[in-house]
Structures are given as structure tokens and as C-alpha cells.
Amino acid sequence: MRLPSCLSRLFLVAAAAGATFPPPAQAAEACPIVSSRNWHAWIDRFPGKGVNRIVVTGRIALPTAGYGWRLVKAGGLRGRPPLQEFRLELVPPSGMAAEVITEVDVRGEAKTPFSNLRVMVSCGGKRIAFFDQVVVTD
């Protein structure tokens, strides 16, 4: 079950105001981003070291200013080529925040033994970007 956007925003405003009631479980899983764009993923290859680095970047729009964010490596899935998931984790502002759509550049990195990967970026359990093939750079 998905909450209407007006209820999701109500919970965010209540949380910012220091409300003490816990939001429903669905609200905790919801992704508050308004939009996302300009996603890129690539693998930096380090020949001879046996480890590569996968880098994912993008731009997200948030409903208010003051959000904290992390783009973290989540569980990988098997397949050919393997699929690596990155999860966008957001923390709402803890105090008063300007109610203005705020764009933020996000970036995540992780080590990988692979040089051929697929990448998925998720937020609140929903896919927001997918790369069927990731470019390798030296």
C-alpha cells in the first residue's frame, strides 16, 4: 500500500517539527525524491591490483532543503553479467527547513572484483536508475 503524496509530506513536516508519533511502516520505505536525472556509472580499472572501483553519480531533487544523503553499495545479485545495487539513503532535516525543491548531486563508490557489471540504483525499494552495461575506464 502506498501513501498519497499529501500524507507523505504531512509525515515529513511532522517529523521536522519534532512530532513524537511513529510514521507507518510504508512511510519509512517511501522515497521522498521529487525527480532524478543525469545518472552515470563507470568502472575505474586498476590493472595488476586485482580490484576495480565502481562509481555511480546522479542528480536528485528533494522536497525541502536540509536532507542528508548517502549512496551506498547494497547487496549484489547473481547473473551474467553480475548486477550491483546501490541504495540511496535519505535523512530528512531535523529542524526547520525551507520548503523549496532542492537539487543535490549524489555519488557512491565501491570496490569490485568485476570489470563487467550491470548497476541498479534504488530508493525506498523502487528502482530509479539502471545500467545494462557499465563503461570501463583505465
Rank of each mutant, 00 (worst) to 15 (best):
residue 84 Q to S: 06
residue 52 N to V: 07
residue 66 G to N: 01
residue 5 S to H: 10
residue 68 G to C: 10
residue 75 G to T: 10
residue 134 V to L: 01
residue 5 S to A: 14
residue 98 A to K: 10
residue 120 M to Q: 15
residue 101 I to H: 03
residue 5 S to K: 09
residue 25 A to D: 09
residue 63 P to W: 03
residue 67 Y to Q: 04
residue 21 F to C: 00
residue 117 L to M: 12
residue 132 D to Y: 04
residue 36 S to G: 09
residue 64 T to G: 09
residue 110 A to Q: 09
residue 1 M to K: 08
residue 54 I to C: 13
residue 57 T to S: 05
residue 55 V to C: 14
residue 10 L to N: 03
residue 118 R to S: 08
residue 103 E to W: 08
residue 27 A to T: 04
residue 130 F to K: 03
residue 14 A to Y: 10
residue 55 V to Y: 07
residue 56 V to L: 10
residue 52 N to K: 06
residue 126 K to Q: 13
residue 118 R to E: 10
residue 125 G to E: 00
residue 119 V to P: 08
residue 86 F to R: 02
residue 99 E to N: 05
residue 38 N to D: 08
residue 133 Q to N: 13
residue 113 P to Y: 12
residue 86 F to W: 07
residue 92 P to L: 14
residue 104 V to T: 13
residue 56 V to E: 06
residue 109 E to H: 04
residue 1 M to C: 02
residue 34 V to W: 01
residue 23 P to N: 08
residue 116 N to E: 09
residue 59 R to Y: 04
residue 81 P to N: 12
residue 29 E to Q: 14
residue 124 G to E: 01
residue 81 P to I: 03
residue 56 V to K: 05
residue 89 E to N: 04
residue 131 F to V: 00
residue 62 L to Y: 04
residue 55 V to D: 09
residue 122 S to T: 15
residue 34 V to Y: 05
residue 69 W to A: 00
residue 31 C to R: 00
residue 134 V to A: 04
residue 61 A to Q: 08
residue 127 R to K: 14
residue 86 F to A: 04
residue 6 C to Y: 09
residue 44 D to I: 07
residue 14 A to S: 12
residue 113 P to Q: 05
residue 31 C to G: 07
residue 66 G to M: 00
residue 136 V to D: 03
residue 21 F to W: 00
residue 69 W to T: 12
residue 21 F to M: 01
residue 88 L to F: 07
residue 130 F to G: 05
residue 49 K to A: 15
residue 8 S to G: 01
residue 28 A to K: 13
residue 13 V to A: 15
residue 96 M to F: 05
residue 35 S to A: 08
residue 27 A to K: 06
residue 23 P to C: 13
residue 77 L to V: 11
residue 46 F to G: 06
residue 87 R to D: 08
residue 99 E to C: 08
residue 50 G to Q: 07
residue 33 I to V: 15
residue 42 W to V: 06
residue 58 G to Q: 01
residue 126 K to G: 14
residue 111 K to W: 10
residue 73 K to C: 08
residue 28 A to Y: 14
residue 25 A to E: 05
residue 14 A to N: 09
residue 108 G to I: 09
residue 76 G to R: 07
residue 2 R to D: 09
residue 85 E to V: 12
residue 6 C to I: 06
residue 34 V to P: 03
residue 127 R to M: 11
residue 88 L to Q: 12
residue 72 V to H: 07
residue 49 K to V: 12
residue 87 R to S: 02
residue 117 L to A: 02
residue 67 Y to F: 15
residue 127 R to V: 15
residue 109 E to F: 00
residue 52 N to E: 04
residue 100 V to A: 02
residue 138 D to H: 12
residue 19 A to T: 11
residue 59 R to N: 02
residue 99 E to W: 05
residue 123 C to M: 11
residue 68 G to L: 15
residue 14 A to C: 08
residue 121 V to H: 10
residue 13 V to K: 14
residue 26 Q to M: 12
residue 41 A to Y: 01
residue 70 R to I: 08
residue 50 G to S: 11
residue 61 A to N: 11
residue 119 V to E: 07
residue 98 A to G: 11
residue 19 A to Y: 15
residue 8 S to L: 05
residue 61 A to F: 04
residue 31 C to M: 01
residue 112 T to Y: 13
residue 58 G to P: 00
residue 96 M to R: 06
residue 33 I to E: 06
residue 114 F to W: 12
residue 68 G to Y: 09
residue 36 S to A: 14
residue 106 V to I: 15
residue 115 S to Q: 05
residue 107 R to K: 15
residue 97 A to G: 11
residue 31 C to D: 05
residue 2 R to L: 05
residue 85 E to S: 04
residue 83 L to Y: 13
residue 130 F to I: 09
residue 21 F to T: 00
residue 113 P to D: 01
